[in-house]
Design a protein around this nucleic acid. Structure first.
Lengths: 149, 149
DNA sequence: CTTTGACGTTTACATCTGTAATCAATATCA
DNA sequence: TGATATTGATTACAGATGTAAACGTCAAAG
């Protein structure tokens, strides 16, 4: 039940999590060294962030001697999907397609990713609506109503 | 130069902005009424948020009598794209494709959006790499290296 | 066994955010 | 014109976040 809310992760926290996800668990030293290759955060700052991630239950600790191995408490994929979904709830329904399009444009995608998308899109085309209405106003007025006056 | 940074918008602020974008400019009253159909924020709270958006230069004000018409200082599309792009910089390069795929799956997309995607994907397939490497560690180690031990 | 280092914990503080009451100026109704 | 409602501005305050120093404790080195 009471699931960890990954959507409250901040940018800095994402940076630590990525390392820990990728290493599939890491000591504070590993995280600190890795982070400091890119950011000039002090050791202290990074420790604070680790602590906060543990408190937020994004990380679990395994005691190994008297020090810890920090482990992800949530799978990376789950966190990515949840965060992106959450962001999309803020966007105008009508314009999400455009946003995804420009994402596809900007991201480097593998053959296999592209093929999966192609398949999915072909399937979605079978039942896709002609238009998707704007849902920004509760009154039901759509963007067009207003933008073209 | 000194461009407004849309990526600092919070969830609450997005809600106000959406209304103002959709109405293409609005009075505080309009915003308050519209927001209060969904949220039970007080008038006061909404005014504070409006003020902060003006200070952050996300909104511009036009004096109309002694009251204001709040106008978007940044186009909605631009804000959406910038925010989504920013979020994607936090994600493992290798897994962005999966995330986009699950987005396509979950979002309602119009025929025309889907067709644009299809075209773009077909084009991208021509030059797409077989694999996209994980970029989570500066050491260059990819997810595989670590996940399969 | 003592000194030194590594590591987790506590404390600190400014800024941002959520949430809102109060105030001052103005416009509108009586 | 005076009372009242509107609206923008100021002030408030707790919690989250960025950023980091200092502290206590255990382990390793000497």
């Amino acid at each position: 039940m009471n699931e960890t809310d990954v959507t409250t992760m901040t940018s800095s926290e994402w940076e630590l999590m990525r390392i820990i996800w990728t290493l599939n668990g890491a000591s504070s030293r590993e995280v600190i060294d890795e982070i400091q290759r890119k950011r000039d955060w002090t050791e202290s700052t990074i420790k604070t962030l680790l602590g906060r991630l543990v408190k937020k239950q994004m990380l679990t600790t395994l005691k190994e001697g008297h020090r810890f191995v920090y482990q992800p408490a949530v799978p990376e994929t789950e966190a990515m999907d949840a965060t992106v979904s959450e962001l999309f709830t803020h966007l105008c329904e009508m314009k999400k397609g455009q946003v995804i399009l420009s994402l596809i444009e900007q991201v480097t995608l593998s053959q296999s990713d592209l093929k999966s998308m192609q398949a999915l899109i072909t399937k979605k085309l079978e039942t896709a609506p002609e238009q998707v209405a704007c849902n920004c106003l509760t009154t039901g007025g759509t963007c067009e109503n207003h933008c073209e006056d």
